[in-house]
Design a protein around this nucleic acid. Structure first.
Length: 565
RNA sequence: CGGAGCGUAGCUCAGGCGGUAGAGCACUGGCAUGGGGGGCCAGAGGUCGGCGGUUCAAGUCCGCUCGCUCCGACCA
């Protein structure tokens, strides 16, 4: 491709709305443009990268035996109502109405659609297993689109759905996908982790996320370098036993005056005790209306996902000041003793002795509280958020903590959708059974951003070779010098003949501008044709390392062959 | 959805006291130049987000509205 015929609108300055490196560089280097909040246009360069990512995914999915389909973006509301997700998915679901008033959703995911297709067309165990996938635009009416391609309202995803006759077979399909995903992310050249994850709104029995390590990621994960344990903090466990303070002799319960002292830090300082001996009491309202008190040790953070899962509800939130008042609860001094709410305790509270809690009375705390002497929780449950330094649940070595971008998520769904939508098959024994499903997503457009987050420097993007828009960038430094343009043209033609994807900067602009653009665009290899052609030489530069090397012109075909391979 | 900020040239931003609209970069023509966004000359480019109000006069003050961004809630 000749740059003079192409479209690469580069920008010297970062657009004011861009915050993170991937957004800044993808816009500046002419890969994407923003149309509205969370909506992006892919320019020719951007589309090339997107297609590369797609094709890598497609290749591995095909190799794994998955079958590509293309499902409509518009999905009838009735389908979503069948599974209950018309309500459950909430405001994130983009809803539209046709002229007759019939309601549709712009698909954020396609479990309902694919399950409908399968129930209408698959009857027998002989038709199974099947795995269908598509690469399709998805929609989410995000409350807050952010960070360019990382969180858009419209984005490209690969989604796949497996259908099996039994859970055993479904687990096998799941494992095939897990291995396939590893191959995909390996080939994409990204630094990623596969982590245990929560199933969220998709539901299902268990799931794994594929997380690309990135400072701007929304996924918080912990992992163990020793044994390989890795999990999203939403679901991560840690070895509680090693997190316990040593046993103590029980001291008598005492109520102490703690004027205006309510936060853990304040109480710890005021009473001269470590936060590990203070127990926070949090009052939560569950989405089914239940009100519960949850105890957790002062140094630990409660994990609302674990709470939601334990109580089997859609959502939860802390009670507001007004609600606490209505319940007769004293904000800032809440405690389990004499509280008229079911009290659940995090596992961190189990075995804790002589600790501090609020006294349900303004400006008072109890000290030397002990279980079960002073109160008894309904149950001890793992509610706390794992963090770096916690002992690994498998091997007890300290866990590491990092943030990342979730670029893939696989779920063993079980029969949640097949039962809700009556997707049954007739098994060998002649009995009708629900199909066992799995679903598997990859954020294609998000991967493009993730790759840039992980591969850039102060000058611009450094594309991994597998997804770079071109392999080779030829810079003819002075287009008025026929000797230079002749050589550059010749290399360009050779590269095309050999099959190296090449961008040829033949524009009549200053050399500096060409170098700056080339750095910004981030094509892995660069051949600079300049003054040295007089000595029969050009220069090869590697974007990643900045390494420069002089090449004799007759050696170029060999070099191109190498680049192709 | 709560809180905050910002909308002026293609981009990044000044101007704010109410009185003829600015800079840098980009763009067009010309000249010179040709290894890191370089120089000189000339030029084009604006319903100052929109609607309404105050005023002799509004980019500037007031109200409403739309958009974009940030923090939070939420989320892949």
């Amino acid at each position: 491709m000749r740059a003079s015929n192409y479209f690469i609108p580069t920008l010297k300055e970062a657009p004011s709305e861009a915050e993170v490196p991937s957004h800044i560089y993808l816009v500046r280097a002419g890969f994407i443009r923003q149309l509205a909040a969370g909506l992006y246009e892919y320019l020719p360069l951007g589309l090339r990268v997107l297609r590369k990512i797609e094709n890598i995914i497609r290749k591995h999915m095909d190799n794994a035996g998955a079958l590509e389909v293309l499902l409509p973006i518009l999905t009838p509301a009735e389908l979503w109502q069948e599974t209950g997700r018309w309500e459950v998915y909430g405001k994130e679901l983009f809803r539209v109405e046709d002229r007759k008033g019939r309601l549709f959703a712009l698909g954020p995911t396609h479990e309902e659609t694919i399950t409908d297709l399968v129930r209408k067309n698959i009857r027998s165990y002989k038709d199974l297993p099947k795995n269908f996938y598509q690469i399709q635009t998805k929609f989410r009416d995000e409350a807050r689109p952010r960070y360019g391609l990382i969180r858009g309202r419209e984005f490209l995803m690969k989604d796949a759905y497996s259908f099996d006759v039994s859970e055993e077979m479904a687990v096998q399909s799941y494992q095939v996908m897990r291995d396939t995903y590893k191959r995909i992310f390996d080939e994409l050249g990204l630094d990623y982790l596969m982590v245990e994850a929560d199933t969220g709104a998709i539901g299902g029995k268990y799931s794994h996320e594929f997380v690309v390590k990135a400072a701007n990621g929304e996924a918080h994960i912990v992992y163990c370098e020793n044994c390989g344990y890795a999990a999203n903090v939403e679901t991560a466990k840690y070895e509680f036993e090693l997190d316990r303070p040593p046993p103590e002799e029980e001291k008598p319960l005492e109520k102490v005056y703690t004027p205006n002292v309510s936060s853990v830090e304040e109480v710890a300082q005021f009473l001269g005790v470590p936060p590990t001996k203070i127990v926070k009491t949090l009052v939560y309202i569950l989405s089914d209306g239940r009100k519960v008190a949850v105890l957790i040790r002062g140094d630990r953070e409660l994990n609302e996902t674990k709470l939601i899962n334990y109580f089997n509800v859609l959502d939860c939130r802390l009670a507001t000041s007004e609600e606490l008042k209505e319940m007769g609860v004293v904000e800032g001094f809440v405690g389990p003793i004499g509280l008229d709410l079911p009290v659940y305790a995090d596992i961190s509270v189990e075995g804790l002795h002589n600790f501090v809690v609020g006294a349900n009375e303004k400006d008072y705390h109890y000290i030397n509280v002990n279980i079960p002497r002073d109160f008894k929780p309904v149950e001890f449950v793992d509610f706390s958020t794992a963090r770096g330094g916690d002992p690994c649940p498998n091997c007890k070595q300290p866990l590491k903590e990092t943030t990342g971008l979730e670029v893939g998520h696989i779920f063993l769904l079980g029969t949640k959708y097949s039962e809700a939508m009556k997707a049954y098959f007739v098994d060998k024994d002649g009995k009708e059974k629900p199909i066992v499903m799995g679903c598997y997503g990859i954020g294609v457009s998000r991967l493009m951003a993730a790759a840039v987050e992980q591969n850039h420097d102060d000058s611009g993007i450094i594309w991994p070779e597998s997804i770079a828009p071109f392999k080779l960038h030829i810079l003819a430094l002075n287009t008025k010098d026929p000797q230079i343009t002749d050589v550059a043209e010749q290399i360009y033609k050779q590269a095309q003949e050999i099959g190296v994807e090449v961008l040829y900067d033949d524009r009549d602009i200053s050399p500096g501008a060409k170098f700056k653009d080339a750095d910004l665009i981030g094509i892995p290899y660069r051949i600079v044709v300049g003054k040295k052609v007089k000595e029969g030489k050009v220069e090869l530069q590697e974007r990643k390392t900045g390494k420069k090397e002089e090449i004799q012109i007759p050696d170029i075909p060999a070099l191109l062959e190498k680049l192709k391979g």
